[in-house]
Design a binder for these strands. Structure first.
Lengths: 234, 234
DNA sequence: GAGTGGTCTAGACCACGTT
DNA sequence: ACGTGGTCTAGACCACTCA
């Protein structure tokens, strides 16, 4: 573990935990350097990386501040469905369909396995907009990485927001495809048979390992995924 | 323009232009520092950014090398359809359907406009795998940014690869959705009516402005989009 | 073992924006 | 005007890895 990584992790933790809320003024580089007993160059490197990651904003003379929480939007947004629905001026609600604890099976073994087949918490739920089905969520949570999920209440709170609050910084891999609705989906989402659905599968990791796998099924005509990126260093 | 940005641009140009092809050994940091007459720290910063962008790979003791051209794959790959088809062990072919030069219309005005409505080159074409339709491409090229497109031969070469060879480093924005096939698509792509299609719209820019807009329509069951990303600095 | 990249330091100067 | 971040330097030490 290098010096600037330690400092980076420390400051990230402060921001993610809320100890330094959005808008909070971050100590000046000189002070941080003194506090961590490193040179200013090292602190500057850390702050540069935080700024590039969008966690903080920096202004000459003004200082550095914790950004408003749009941290993940830069690349491929991890949708908060509740926000999404509310931004359409519709009432959001959530409904749990099932929850089971079981051993990892099938593909989950390859995704989650760190040797022995671990336990997963499998949740299916429905997100609704104005009382109408909006999106079907099927989710497996790796209990080896997130044991606290057992004590979470997924009746009133969806697994996505709960995980976001628990597991702050992650790596994700997405698969996106269009599929015709099958029987289950057409029933749950109130679709006509074979209607086009947008299926987004996402696996996420943190530093301890695989966190969760989730499949979100949207009626295709009601949803668009957007992604910005810049390939080069620009 | 700062020192390390100049050096970054210089080395990027060498890589993108092919002067330093994939696999090429990049001069050592000490030599680069001497060549540009800067300190090694400055060169190191540049090389670090190039490595993070995926343009080069670095090995201790081994030196630094230009990466194989997967530069854009890190986030959301800009598919080279020919490669994609060949990776399925199918024969790839390409077919131009139409090409017209006209003024920008509709949404293109907002996308491309830098004041007056400029000219666009509008191309529709079909990508085929083993003689069967694989993907429908509809593309508008901003002639204000890419005037050379007028002289390109889009009969034998698809616009995508041609643009990639002309406009190296770009920013892109994607919209992805699932839609039922309409008449035109179901005819051109050989689909059953209302079959689920994956539609990817992409707009790209370079430093001079908007380059192109493209809509790719894939039969949903034949295509998956994948995207990796890491939200934080990790 | 030798040479590379990775990291860090203790200074320095400057542009710029807030005051 | 002042103080901040942005940048750059000329050193240094270390770990890793290839020969």
């Amino acid at each position: 573990m290098t010096l600037h990584r330690k400092i980076l992790a420390d400051i990230e933790e402060k921001i993610v935990s809320g100890a330094w809320p959005p808008g909070h003024r971050i100590p000046f580089e000189v002070d941080l350097a003194a506090h961590y007993d490193v040179s200013r160059m090292t602190v500057n490197k850390v702050m540069g990386q935080l700024a590039q990651a969008g966690l903080i904003e920096r202004r000459k003379k003004g200082g550095s501040f914790v950004s408003q929480p749009k941290a993940q939007s830069a690349v491929l947004e991890i949708h908060d469905i509740a926000d999404e629905v509310r931004s359409l001026n519709l009432e959001y609600s959530y409904q749990q369909l099932s929850i089971t604890r079981r051993k990892a099976i099938g593909e989950e073994l390859a995704w989650f396995a760190n040797g022995s087949p671990g336990d997963v918490l499998f949740v299916t739920c429905l997100h609704l907009a104005a009382g109408q089905p909006f999106c079907l969520e099927e989710r497996a949570i790796n209990l080896a990485t997130v044991p606290a999920a057992l004590e979470a209440d997924f009746i009133s709170l969806a697994p996505g927001p709960w995980l976001s609050s628990q597991i702050p910084w992650i790596t994700a891999q997405h698969r996106i495809q269009a599929v015709p609705a099958d029987r289950k989906e057409h029933k749950l989402l109130n679709l006509t048979p074979k209607q086009a659905c947008l299926v987004i599968e996402r696996r996420t990791w943190n530093t301890s390992g695989a966190v969760t796998w989730v499949r979100m099924t949207y009626p295709g005509n009601r949803h668009v995924v957007t992604a910005d990126f810049r390939p080069a260093s620009a």
